[in-house]
Simulated scan of single mutants.
Amino acid sequence: MQKICVIGGSRYFGKLLVQRLHAAGHQVTVINRGSTRPPAGVHHLVADRDDEAALVAALGSTTFDVVVDQVCYTPVQAAIAARAFRGRTSRYVMTSTIEVYDPATSALPTVPRGTPVPEGTVDPASWPVRPDLPWQDDTYLEAHYAEGKRQAEAVFTRDSGFAFASVRSAHVLGGGAQEFTGRLAHYIERIARGTEIAVHAEARPTVFIHYEELADLLLWAATATDFTGPLNACSDGLLDVRELSALIGAQTGREAAYRTVGAGETASPFSFDRPYAMSNTRAKELGFPFSRTSDWLPGAVAEVVGTHIV
């Protein structure tokens, strides 16, 4: 049994992670602002992670074996957490994102066409940190989500006082109504109604992960391994927007209709005109067995069809 703290953990794969950690016999504490209570048997600390004094007061003298941070989006939040948990934990796992590799949001090293990117493409040990930027502004943060995650990883990597690992998640699907992004529903509804899907002329493939698989990987990262640094988390198999739509069409008995977007026009989610796929080789070498996207995606589509009028 380990003492594990989850910051956030009130919805989707974070909620599932808390449930699975508790079911596995670990002593789990959830920290959030109090809007959602954790399951019975899970300790609850109410604090705003952006308020350092309140966070430290809520923690008191409590220590943990591992902290899993589900809701760190900026270098300012990372710096607060690094100070608050220094001396209180020996390991810290942050949920990050595939978007750190988006070449549209920063100048990144180029990779050969069609090559999924490895973790070293974005090295947090050398990434510049700008805590003076307006991270507290929601509009700014939404527009700079990828950069906020990159800089948060950098803060923990360079100045934390504990072993740090980041899990860079692929696009998460599954869970029916729990899937709060609504991106899978976007496609299912349009295909079922015959509405055109806006795509790039040469859409590039990307990677996905089922929300249960991501919860399993985070549990593994917190309790069964001691790796540090970034780790890509994605199921096997690349899909572009047309392949994804074709699979949905096969499930719904409808054929997708497409419209090619012009320069500067917004395409549907998961249509990318730039490289946007990760390599999961490192996680496999460390011992995590990934599923294939094609194995679980039909079930994920069926879950959404069952919860939406299409």
Rank of each mutant, 00 (worst) to 15 (best):
E99F: 10
T223Q: 07
G299S: 12
L108V: 10
S245M: 03
A82D: 01
V305Y: 06
A192V: 07
P118K: 09
S106D: 15
C72N: 07
V301F: 05
V122R: 10
I209K: 00
V301S: 07
F272G: 01
Q27F: 09
P298S: 10
F85W: 15
S106E: 13
T121Q: 15
K3Q: 14
V68S: 08
S35G: 12
A185N: 07
A152N: 05
G264Q: 05
H22M: 10
T110K: 14
R91D: 06
A146T: 08
A53M: 08
L173G: 05
A201P: 01
V28S: 06
T266E: 14
A47F: 02
S10V: 10
W127E: 13
V111F: 15
D132T: 14
K284Y: 06
T29E: 03
A84F: 04
F180M: 11
L297P: 04
S35D: 12
A58L: 06
S166Y: 08
T62C: 11
P112M: 03
T63S: 11
C72H: 05
G264D: 09
I80H: 05
Y211D: 01
G87Q: 04
A221F: 07
S106I: 01
I191F: 05
P75Y: 03
Y145N: 03
S90F: 01
G41T: 12
E147I: 14
R49F: 10
E213I: 04
L55E: 02
Y145T: 06
E142D: 11
A192N: 00
T223L: 04
G161F: 05
R37E: 13
T228M: 03
G299C: 09
P39S: 08
G306D: 11
P205I: 05
I191Q: 06
T115R: 12
Q251V: 11
A222T: 00
S268L: 07
F272V: 00
I98L: 15
V6E: 05
R193E: 11
S160E: 01
H171Y: 11
Y101Q: 04
C234H: 13
L247M: 15
S166F: 07
F270Q: 00
P298L: 12
I188W: 04
E212V: 13
R183M: 09
L141M: 13
E153W: 05
T105N: 11
R158T: 14
I209H: 03
Y12E: 05
T74D: 05
Y92R: 04
